[in-house]
Design a protein around this nucleic acid. Structure first.
Length: 492
RNA sequence: GUCUCCUUCGUCUAGUGGUUAGGACACCGGGUUUUCAACCCGGCAACAGGGGUUCGACUCCCCUAGGAGAUGCCA
């Protein structure tokens, strides 16, 4: 039985890179009918952020990643929060000391810093000098009786080499001389990532460790840890990182970085999911659109790329447009609601009261937006409370003068008024006729009407827009434009 | 500095010794058209460099360069 886990530390909101690592881990488990576990690695209380755990869970759920065991739902190997498992790690570290594979180190942090500084200065390999590795029994006893603070370190082999087989990169070998005696238990009694992670992965029967490539250089030490316990290590797969456009880490400077931010900017979860799945993984040479179901069906580790991928906001935007166009008006309205409210366009109650109207508006803008957050700016003019002719000058397009525009608007008002059933087909029939009658070019006739009715020169199709607005609004707005032009008689 | 990993169009990628090196995004051009989109058609554009191995290398090996990560009582 395949068992994978996502093991974030709650030091901030879930990053898009973390989401992808979680996704790959999740997909692998699901593809193989296995179990996916969420484990919170909160062993660094100095960086702990209260809201982080909630955010991580909400972000995962948002894209449809669901765990079978986790801190909120428990499971056969609970608890799934490392701060609640402190004793387990301590016991294991002591076990290692007994086996002669770990030792107490009484070196102060000051000494270690000084040591590193000197090593750097002399251009030597930087790392712990194993000062306490062979302390005599008496020294240890003495320090202990003095209550001197200590950490527990792993005794790494001094010679030979350690290797492991990475499912993505193949065999990775390091010379043991380059290894350090890593800290297992900190002086505050909390375990480090290395210990807690290995102990939990073993205890929780994790079969495949799928994590970011920043862990590659730690893995040999982890392998030694497994060996020291006499445990069989799991399979490892280190997935490439996501880079910012131009290289380097993805940061706020480039745009959204946390899942929460993407959500708030108006990205759809399907788009984010589809996009990140294809960042470092591919199915074939042509398929671009994948649902979660598709991903589960097709996902294999072999198709994960070795090289890191650069994040492309352009492509994400394209995906978002694709998924927005797939939505029904009802769904899109539901998704757009928070954005409409946030932009102060309508209140929650107003949205409900205008539900049918909005459902007719949505299809008109659906293929014109890439982000949900663009909805308010595309539909504002449908609401009288906000309506104004924003681009008044455009009432009189190039090639027409004011009196011609006025004449046109008046004729249009008159004709539109006569239309009994105000449908786009009937409107079109009339306006086409008006074109013939006046002899004006299409642009010259559409633009004054478009500006009068929608307030700006960019809008959805005129006939559909008019139909949705309804006869009364259309006529009122045309009248408004006429009064404006008559009043001015000139447009400076 | 040392160690490890990585390297196909601007970007995401397909490719597993013999291909006109394919697709997608972006970009450019055209079509449709009522503005903006959407849509359709077309175009631009890549095997980091140098050595090998081989009848033949994008594919295998080595070196160099570039990039990334690690080098923490952070994960």
């Amino acid at each position: 039985m395949v068992r994978t886990r996502f093991a974030p530390s709650p030091t901030g909101f879930l990053h898009i890179g973390g989401l992808r690592t979680a996704l790959f881990s999740y997909l692998f488990a699901r593809h193989n009918g296995g179990i996916f576990i969420l484990r919170i690695e909160d062993t660094d209380r100095t960086r702990y952020i209260e809201e982080a755990m909630t955010d991580i869970m909400e972000s995962l759920k948002w894209v449809g990643i669901e765990w079978d065991e986790g801190p909120d739902i428990g499971g056969p190997y609970a608890p799934y929060k490392q701060s609640e498992r402190k004793d387990i790690y301590l016991q294991h570290a002591e076990e290692l000391i007994k086996r002669g594979n770990a030792y107490k180190c009484f070196c102060s942090q000051e000494r270690l810093e000084k040591l590193r500084e000197e090593q750097r200065k002399r251009g030597e390999k930087i790392g712990y000098d194993r000062h306490c590795r062979n302390l005599s029994e008496e020294d240890i006893k003495r320090y202990e009786s003095e209550n001197k603070p200590y950490v527990i370190r792993l005794k790494a082999p001094l010679s030979g080499e350690t290797n492991f087989n990475d499912l993505i990169r193949g065999k990775i070998t390091v010379s043991n001389e380059t290894l350090d005696d890593i800290v297992l238990i900190k002086s505050d009694g909390f375990p480090t990532y290395h210990l807690a992670n290995i102990v939990d992965d073993h205890l929780m029967r994790i079969t495949h460790v799928i994590r970011g490539e920043e862990w590659i250089s730690s893995t040999p030490k982890h392998v030694i840890l497994y060996q020291s316990f006499g445990w069989e290590p799991p399979f490892f797969a280190h997935v490439p990182v996501i880079l910012a456009p131009g290289g380097g880490k993805l940061s706020k400077r480039h745009g959204a970085t946390t899942v929460k931010e993407f959500r708030e900017k108006g990205y759809l979860s399907e788009a984010v999911l589809n996009f990140i799945a294809l960042l470092g993984w591919s199915y074939d040479d042509k398929t671009e659109i994948f649902s979660m179901e598709d991903l589960i069906k097709y996902f294999t580790i072999e198709k994960i790329n070795k090289a890191s991928a650069v994040f492309s906001y352009d492509k994400l935007d394209w995906y978002n447009g694709v998924y927005i166009r797939k939505k029904s008006p009802e769904e899109l309205l539901e998704l757009g609601k928070p954005f409409i409210i946030k932009a102060d366009l309508l209140t929650e109650d107003e949205i409900e009261a205008n539900r049918d109207y909005l459902l007719k508006i949505i299809p008109l803008i659906q293929e014109r937006i890439k982000l949900l957050s663009e909805i308010p700016e595309k539909i504002w003019f449908f609401f009288d409370r906000h309506f104004e002719i924003r681009e008044k000058k455009e009432l009189v397009p190039k090639g027409l003068d004011i009196s011609q525009a006025l004449d046109l608007l008046k004729k249009a008002r008159k004709g539109l008024e006569k239309i009994e059933t105000f449908t786009k087909d009937n409107i079109e029939e009339f306006i086409r006729g008006l074109m013939e009658e006046t002899g004006f070019k299409t642009k010259q006739i559409f633009m004054p009407l478009r500006v009068a009715v929608t307030g700006t020169r960019v809008s959805p199709g005129l006939f559909e827009t008019m139909e949705v607005l309804g006869k009364k609004r259309v006529l009122d707005r045309i009248s408004k434009a006429i009064y404006y032009l008559e009043d001015r008689k000139s447009l400076e």
